[in-house]
């Protein structure tokens, strides 16, 4: 047995007792690294997730829809910041996280590598993508790492607006002309499967899942969360009188859940590997936004230096 055995027991005991782990507590290195991976990936997803919607701010069909979308994208930036700040408590700097994102070492939700082609996509993203994210994030409000759990609580408070504004766009299109209904259906057809992929691989294929469940970083399995999302989304689609693009989707009386078809895992892994429609563009845009913002950081440094000099003189 190593010298760390008592600490490890104590750590696992806290987790088993439903206590939260806080930044100054002893924690296994693997727990810390696992959290850095998951939390920074989550933060990056919020930030990269601004791009598919941000592209529509200036093209939204009315001033009202523009300000709504602007507010939503602004929230996503805020969520990214909550999460970066929580991840920094694990001893990694924001600059390091940023450089790992830009080098491709860190991932973000693969769904943001799909293009947002029409206005209906903005509705589908809010309704389906944010809807899937909410299912995951509600579960993570009970994650074992205190700063992560608290960030999730703050984020969940703001997510409901996101999903509803998206659904509201879908309702309006579904009530509209034949073309508008077709546009809404087309958006669902393209976003449904990637939304299901957001929950990650099957539990049996998920390399990080088992340890994450034992440490209660994850509280519910990928497949359970995915099932929950499917179950609640079917009825919302029926209200729109639109369809989910899955011939195998049907209620299973015995399981009391919807059965649904198999995800195209080859597509999932291709997109993760960097071969999605927009992977290169997303990172390229992130790099250029960061570089274009250099003058702001330079100005802040110059201001700090000037103030320090004035203090010396005085």
């Amino acid at each position: 047995m190593s010298d760390l055995a008592p600490e490890l027991d104590n750590f696992q005991q806290k987790i088993d007792d439903e206590q939260r782990i806080e930044p100054k507590d002893w924690m296994p290195e693997k727990y810390r690294l696992n959290l850095i991976r998951q939390m920074s990936q989550h933060a990056h997803s919020e930030v990269i997730g601004m791009q598919p919607e941000g592209n529509w701010i200036s093209s939204a069909p009315s001033l009202y829809r523009k300000i709504v979308l602007l507010s939503k994208v602004q929230d996503e930036a805020g969520h990214g910041l909550y999460l970066y700040s929580a991840t920094e408590t694990l001893g990694i700097s924001r600059a390091e996280m940023n450089s790992r994102l830009q080098s491709g070492e860190s991932k973000y939700a693969s769904i943001f590598n799909y293009p947002s082609l029409t206005w209906a996509d903005v509705g589908a993203i809010g309704w389906l993508v944010d809807g899937a994210a909410i299912v995951n994030q509600v579960s993570l409000q009970r994650t074992s790492y205190g700063p992560y759990a608290r960030a999730m609580i703050r984020i969940c408070k703001e997510e409901s607006f996101h999903q509803r504004q998206g659904y509201d766009i879908m309702v309006k299109l579904a009530e509209g002309s034949k073309e508008q209904r077709e546009m809404a259906q087309d958006a669902i057809n393209r976003w449904w499967w990637p939304s299901l992929m957001m929950f990650g691989p099957h539990d049996s294929d998920s390399v990080n899942s088992q340890q994450s469940m034992k440490w209660k970083i994850k509280r519910q399995s990928n497949d359970d969360l995915r099932q929950k999302f499917v179950d609640q989304t079917v009825q919302q689609t029926e209200i729109l009188k639109l369809e989910l693009p899955d011939p195998d989707l049907k209620w299973n009386e015995e399981r009391q859940h919807y059965d649904f078809g198999e995800i195209d895992w080859d597509e999932f892994y291709q997109v993760i590997k960097g071969n999605g429609h927009c992977n290169r563009d997303r990172i390229k845009h992130h790099v250029s936004a960061h570089e274009e913002g250099a003058w702001v950081r330079d100005a802040m440094t110059a201001y700090a230096e000037k103030k320090a000099q004035r203090k010396e003189v005085a």
């Binding site: 507010s71 607006f161 509803r164 659904y167 509201d168 609640q232 209200i239």
Partner: peptide, 19 residues
């Protein structure tokens, strides 16, 4: 004046659940 930032400013269709 920015009521649209709140979920309640989006009336949902009757009967829709879990949203």
């Amino acid at each position: 004046d920015k009521a649209y930032r709140h979920a309640m400013s989006y009336p949902m269709p009757e009967g829709v659940k879990n949203i």
